[in-house]
Design a protein around this nucleic acid. Structure first.
Lengths: 189, 189, 189, 189
DNA sequence: AATGAATGAGCTTTCATTCAT
DNA sequence: CATGAATGAAAGCTCATTCAT
């Protein structure tokens, strides 16, 4: 089991890097195997297909983010504080694994439709639930939840995209305070 | 000229629909030709490659949006009013051609890197310039422009994505006022 | 259509020869393309897969034989005469296209199970019907039809196999009389 | 020795079943190992290759049949009686191990060409010799031996194929008498 | 003897692109 | 301008076989 796990990890890492660098379609299984230092056939001992590998990587990113946000959700009670903590958590995760985060940002729209199984915890759902509870408790005005959710997510995610495009220097964490403030202004409107 | 133009239009429309429905990679030139009711070879009378077709569709979408926003930019002077007009313009264009808009939303990140020539007018640039001028004029606080830009765009675009995912009913225009208000709160922070 | 048909015919001929010479599994699509003087991809303009090509060749052989036997069946009334004509027809077809016949003999058992669509006329059915009518008319004794059919077919087919293995010299037609006589003795038993 | 033998037997049984059910090419070593409840690598402790396993199974079937027929050949003197005994022996062996027999019937043509070493006793040879001696002794008319042999074998084998295809119910033994009679009529012609 | 993860050659198949008509 | 059969490079994937444990 030891050895198999190590191989699998090398494989995932290599694929993630290549997918971000050159795109999923543009990356061949041969590329992946070469970068991971394994045989092409070995990929198929761990994933049923290249597509499932791509999907698995996305699911994994979303799961991690979802779990982290969920932990934050349970740790904080006050909505404004919770939102600040959400944003900070998001930024810290992005900084900690920018490769994986870029992948998520680039391919979520394209791949989300094809995830055979969903992430263990969906980050969008976590935030939606928190906002909904906030509305119910009167912490923020009652409005169409999906609209508020979308706008709130947009503030954070598009900031990350700006960084992805090289328009923003420094770490995501550097912008956490301002972003959190913006989110709050959006949702408390 | 007439006939060629009609063919080209059928071709673009068919490609756009298929790209949105099943993804660019997943759509073959055969699919496109079949849906457009033309021969596969004919595609190459109008576009150098499938990739250029995909890129052209994105460039076209961005150009249209850019031109429309630019017109708005010139028509309005007052920043708050201008931002409302920007958002309204965006929503109206989305409602008018939802297919084309979905394509833009889904593939901009993936394809933007590979546009051989840029759109005639970049919508992001138009908005950035407007915000920059607003900062210079003291209409909004002076901050890192790319951050403010990203957050503002995020509010609008992620709302569109919510609709793309079927989470929001109705037309984009229905949400224009609220979205515009949110953008204003973000940039005026 | 002209050109496409010619290509298809070259393809079928090349595949048939190779399948008989080295076996279906042992023959690669590359082999087939090379022998046919076409590109590998062209195979797939004419057949969905290599397997379907193999199946199509078998179906075609069986159909031709079935049609020929059916014509004989309608031309002859008297059962003994009909049986002689059946055997002669079989031998003549074998001699006329020994390649195709060998293929049929070698692969019918393996492929018959996987024919997606049946031959236009099943040679076995033609013979069974003729024997059944003969029994009904009292021309031969009434017995389990499948047994009589099997034994009759065996006399003819195993003779062909002896030739296929190189144990019998000359043409199948050389043995037609003796084989027909044997079949008659078997069915009239 | 004990354990190895048991493993080998599980292996042969699993392979035989799968080869009959889905074909030799269609059966992977992984399939075989799974069905036998052993590791894939273990196959290669007992057979040099998958092909040799397939060949060995065929050789074994043919050897057993050949030995049994040889015993009959030595036990009987009178040709008509011997032929009856041959047929009965064949039918009994078929009934006793229908799986193995099916394999033989399906793949003898395809694999016979590639048997690296022949069966310990070739059933065809045994029958040919008996018929030849019968001819020499005047028990049956003198004719091209390979023709007579082929026709005689065909009567028996094609009957088995009818059963294999599900056209004949019951056991092969049920048809032994009629088949033997037919063989006699063919060879004594 | 048995294991099973890893191998990698080589397969079938795809599909963007070409070009003779 | 349009056609569509043909192309062929290159892709994803399979699977018999190996070998360290």
């Amino acid at each position: 089991m030891r050895k198999g796990d190590a191989t699998r990890e090398k494989l995932r890492r290599a694929a993630l890097a290549l997918f971000v660098e050159q795109g999923v379609t543009e990356t061949t299984t041969r590329d992946i195997a070469a970068r991971a230092g394994i045989a092409e056939g070995t990929i198929y001992r761990h994933f049923a297909s290249k597509d499932e590998l791509a999907a698995d990587l996305l699911r994994d990113q979303l799961s991690r983010l979802g779990e982290a946000l969920y932990a934050v959700d349970r740790a904080e009670d006050d909505l404004p504080t919770k939102i600040r903590a959400f944003v900070r958590c998001y930024c810290e995760m992005a900084d900690a694994d920018w490769h994986g985060f870029s992948y998520q940002l680039l391919y979520q729209h394209v791949w989300l439709r094809r995830l055979p199984e969903p992430p263990s915890r969906n980050p969008v759902t976590v935030v939606r639930d928190a906002l909904e509870r906030g509305m119910a408790a009167g912490a923020i005005p009652r409005r169409e939840i999906e609209l508020v959710l979308g706008m709130a997510l947009g503030v954070v995610m598009q900031t990350a995209i700006q960084k992805l495009y090289g328009s923003l220097d420094g770490a995501m964490t550097d912008y956490a305070e301002e972003v959190a403030e913006a989110v709050w202004r959006v949702v408390s409107q």
